[in-house]
Amino acid sequence: MSHLTDLPSWAAIPVCMLLLLGAAMTLIGSIGLIRLPSFYDRLHAPTIATSGGTVLICLASMLCFAVLQSRWIFHELLIIFFITVTTPVTLMLLGQAALYRNRLEKPRDVPQTPGRPSKEDSQ
């Protein structure tokens, strides 16, 4: 553990805080994944892990290696960019797929397409 001993304490404390906070946010998101009752509720849980957890943990890593100046910190920037751009797309598509399936199976529980009757929808 040679590189961590070089980290001054004014940088070490924020790194620890950001890391722990980010991990806690990720854990909260996953707890939501098992605690929330319906699928549409659970759809909200992973966004905490991405928008909170990923950004905080990557910030901790960036701060650590920027102070140490041991390597470039662009990978974290790219990870933040990819995750913030891609996860909403995944969740949006998943929500639409779930809505589509629920409309076919249990049309009562979900709102129908406005302006179209449900029978036409299921054909």
């Binding site: 909200h44 949006m92 809505l99 406005p114």
Partner: peptide
């Protein structure tokens, strides 16, 4: 969708 409280589903 990125906002945790809301999730986009459909636009007519």
């Amino acid at each position: 969708t990125a906002t945790p409280g809301t999730a986009w589903l459909e636009y007519d």
